[in-house]
């Protein structure tokens, strides 16, 4: 479902003398439905960069990246948006908070965007918020004022509120307490059982061991110039 083939990436810093920073070369990856793959390697090795290239907010300069049948290198913006709407989910550590939008609406939004009726979408959103232990009194508030952990859990609820064929997880269990961590691992297992192809970054090695089927070492994709 997520196929990365010979992907490479470099940054050209036009305002710093046109410096070229190659950050990735020859990345290969293939995540099948029902499989959870972890990206590993020291920080700065390009794990997040590859995640972003798959998500589509970083351009892929070489090779190809195909997600649920869409080739991201040639895809039009609206094709990528359609992919994100119904096939590709992303749970990051940080919630992009929009002032005035209540937590419940944030969680229900992916469902509404797919045309699910409001009543059903909000029901599902409520059960997700309950599951990640967000107190009910907070549901109607904007997460602007929530703590970091609460914001992260709202984000997780949003990420798992719908069934995604492909799912990207960026440190989903970071800074969670043991109970919530168990909840998130449960959600990941359910998604796998549903047939989702999952690619994740887990610094939490126990969590990684608990849900991941295999690991891909990002060191293998480091461009030679950068390594030298």
């Amino acid at each position: 479902m997520i196929e990365v083939s010979g992907a490479g990436k470099r940054f050209v810093l036009h305002n710093q003398g046109g410096a070229v920073l190659p950050v990735m070369a020859g990345a290969f990856l293939d995540v099948k439905p029902g499989e959870c793959v972890a990206l590993v390697g020291p920080s700065g090795v390009g794990k997040s960069t590859l995640m972003r290239m798959i998500w589509g907010n970083y351009r892929c300069d070489e090779g190809s990246i195909r997600v649920a049948g869409l080739d991201l290198r040639d895809a039009a913006p609206r094709d990528i948006l359609a992919l994100r709407r119904d096939r590709l989910g992303y749970v990051s550590q940080f919630l992009r908070v929009i002032p005035r939008v209540p937590a419940l609406n944030i969680v229900a939004e992916p469902l509404l965007a797919n045309g699910i009726a409001e009543a059903a979408a909000f029901d599902r959103a409520r059960s997700m918020l309950e599951r990640v232990n967000i107190p009910q009194r907070l549901w109607s508030l904007s997460p602007t004022t929530f703590s970091g952990g609460e914001q992260q859990r709202v984000n997780i609820a949003r990420g798992f509120v719908q069934h995604w064929p492909c799912l990207l997880l960026d440190e989903p269990t970071a800074s969670l307490d043991a109970d919530n961590r168990a909840v998130v691992l449960g959600l990941i297992r359910e998604a796998k059982a549903d047939g989702a192809a999952i690619l994740g970054i887990f610094h939490d090695t126990d969590a990684r061991a608990a849900v991941c089927d295999r690991e891909v070492d990002m060191n293998d994709f480091t461009p030679r110039e950068a390594a030298a």
């Binding site: 972003r52 970083y58 351009r59």
Partner: peptide
């Protein structure tokens, strides 16, 4: 291009600035 791609991974010098 896609909004978050242009903002997160700007290609042109002016956009980067």
């Amino acid at each position: 291009g896609l909004t978050d791609q242009v903002l997160d991974d700007p290609q042109h010098g002016y956009t980067q600035l």
